[in-house]
Structure formats: C-alpha cells, structure tokens
C-alpha cells in the first residue's frame, strides 16, 4: 500500500471513536435510524467489496442472500400474527438458522457461477437476485408480497424503538468485527489464494489450485457476511418483504460499494454513510422513489467520473498529493468486469 499507514490509522481510529460516541452528541434519529442503517448496509456492501477486491467477482447476489437470512429469521421467530410459517422459535435459533440456510444457498449459488467471470458472472448473480425476489413474492407460505412483520430482536437488545442505542452498538460491534475478520482473512492462505485466483486463475490452476472450488468457498463466505447484515436489517426494520430485496435494493448496495470504493473494505461504510444521508435529505425535500434514484444516480456519476475508485480513491489521492507520493498500482479501475477469460 502506497498510502502512509499512519494517516489511514489515525483517520480510522478517529472514525471509530466518533461512531462509539455518536449517541452522546447525535439525535436518536441519527443514531437509531441513519447510523444503524449505515452499519448494516455497510456490512452487506463489505461482502461485495470483499468478493470484488480480493476475488475479482462483482456479485449482485449479496442482497438476495441478505434477504434469505432475513426471511428465514422472520419465518422462524414470529409467532402468529403475520405471514410466513410463524414457528415462534427463539431468536438465537433464528439467527443460526438464517445464517446457515443463507450460506448453504450462497454455496450453491457460488458453485453454479464459479466457472464464469466478468460480465457473465455479474449476469448470473443478477439472476439469483431476481429469483430470490420472485420466490418470496410468489411463495405465500413463506412470505408473499406483504412480507413478514413483527420480527423481534433478542431480549438483550429488546424493543428496538425503545432502546435504539442497543441495536446501534450491536451493529457497530458486528461491523467492526466483520471488518477485522476480513482484514485478517485476506492475509491467510485462504485469502492469498483468493487473490491469486483474482489476478490469474490460469496460473493458479497450473500451480495446483482448484479455482472453481476456491471461488465457491469465497462466495459462501461472503454469503455469511451478507447474512449477518440481513439479520441486523430485519431486527432494525422489524419487517421484511420482497421489496426489501428487489432490483432497486440490489442496485443500491452496488451503488454504495462503488461510491465508497470497490477495492477497499473501508469503502463499504463510507459509501453507506453517504447513501443514507442522501436518502434522508432527499426524502425531506420530497425526492422519494424514482426521484431519489435519479439524485443518487447523479451523485454516483459525479463521484465515479472524478474518482473511479470512489470516495476511498479521493481520500488516497488527497493523501498522495499531500505527501507528494506517486499514485500506487492499487489505484486502478475498480470495476473490471471484462475481458472474460473463459478457460480454467
């Protein structure tokens, strides 16, 4: 990394401190609504950035997986008064079940897409997203259009509206844990192998690696991260319906990841913060639905035109101007969906 580590560390520690102290200086609306949302959207975006930056896989299925975890949790834990199976199980069983099923489906999705790269991979994962959305719309035993309501967080978090800070801190600890885990993982044999697969799958195969299997396992792991985000989302929202994972939501997470910077994990939360703030203020001035998407689209274009590597890219460029360093090799175009190399 060409950026001075110290500057990154200082800003990172400052941001973490600001986040820890947020409930003391921000309104409960900011903390309970905007920042909590930023945290779980950031987790889902981080699962996408992990796949993209370290595995060369730009996935549009992360929201689908996040939704699957949410729907499973909803079906498992609600009790009586809503759509779905209403199994009424403990929230802890719901968490485990939601994550396990989401990861299992993620592994299946990953296995089917593991021999595709570039734009073909993108299209296959887009299909997963559409399938998940249609599945929960059509299968009324599990959800249907109206979705599942009244989903409660475990007692330690309690009523999310009454104790907004509790869910906020749970989300903060989870997001930070996810960030540290991903940072660690990319230095392990699994993570280095994944980066080898990203840079040259043909070479990896001739060195003895099983490239499709490695891609599949990485996709399954990213599904675990997305599922964790999905659980937090459903607790925060109390409700999940097919619209939570429709095409718009899928694109939103891609926009968050690209806005933040598709090649560094920190970008996930930076993009998510920008996204929830724009979303919030555009609602106040009556920009909702399509008008919001027009606005975020315009901001997206502006940022990507100025800095193809998103806000993180702007930050790195500012730092390198400041320190007089050359731009590093990591400052490459982050969206490399072509050229497809179909061998392996």
């Amino acid at each position: 990394m060409t950026v001075p580590v110290s500057a990154d560390r200082i800003v990172g520690a400052g941001a973490l401190l600001a986040a820890i102290l947020a409930p003391f200086y921000l309104s409960s609306y900011w903390v309970g609504t905007l920042l909590t949302q930023m945290l779980f959207l950031g987790i889902v975006a981080a699962s996408l950035i992990f796949l993209s930056a370290y595995g060369g896989m730009v996935s549009l299925a992360q929201v689908a997986v996040y939704g699957i975890a949410g729907f499973v949790l909803g079906n498992a834990t609600t009790n009586g008064n809503t759509k779905g199976l209403n199994l009424g199980w403990s929230p802890w069983i719901g968490i485990v079940l939601g994550i396990v099923i989401a990861v299992a489906i993620g592994l299946l999705f990953g296995a089917l897409a593991s021999r595709s790269v570039g734009i073909y991979f993108l299209m296959i994962t887009l299909t997963y997203s559409v399938i998940a959305n249609l599945f929960f719309s059509q299968v009324t035993d599990l959800s249907g259009f109206g979705g599942i309501s009244g989903i409660r967080a475990p007692n330690v978090i309690g009523n999310v509206e009454a104790h907004q800070n509790r869910l906020y801190y749970v989300a903060l600890v989870t997001a930070f844990g996810v960030y540290l885990l991903l940072r660690y993982l990319v230095r392990t044999p699994f993570g280095l192998t994944l980066q080898g697969v990203r840079d040259d799958p043909v070479r990896m195969a001739s060195l003895g690696y099983n490239v499709p299997l490695h891609r599949t396992v990485a996709f399954g792991f990213a599904s675990l991260i997305a599922a964790i985000g999905g659980i937090l989302f459903v607790w925060w929202n109390g409700h999940v319906d097919p619209a939570s994972i429709d095409l718009g939501a899928t694109i939103d997470v891609l926009v968050i990841a690209v806005l933040g910077g598709l090649y560094r994990l920190e970008g996930a939360w930076i993009g998510a913060l920008l996204f929830v703030i724009v979303n919030n203020y555009s609602q106040r001035i009556g920009f909702i639905g399509d008008r919001f998407h027009t606005l975020i689209g315009a901001i997206f274009l502006a940022i990507v035109l100025v800095s193809p590597s998103g806000m993180i890219g702007l930050w790195e460029r500012a730092l390198s101007l400041f320190s007089g360093r050359r731009r590093g090799p990591l400052d490459r175009n982050p969206i490399e969906v072509g050229p497809a190399e179909p061998s392996v």
């Binding site: 392990t188 699994f190 280095l192 192998t193 060195l207 003895g208």
Partner: peptide, 13 residues
C-alpha cells in the same frame, strides 16, 4: 502461492 499450490491447506482461514 507457488509453494503452497502442491501442498494441502489452500482453504486454511
């Protein structure tokens, strides 16, 4: 990676 390729433990996290 070139050394690890022919050994086991590619998935070690």
């Amino acid at each position: 990676l070139a050394v690890l390729g022919v050994k086991s433990g590619h998935m070690r996290p």
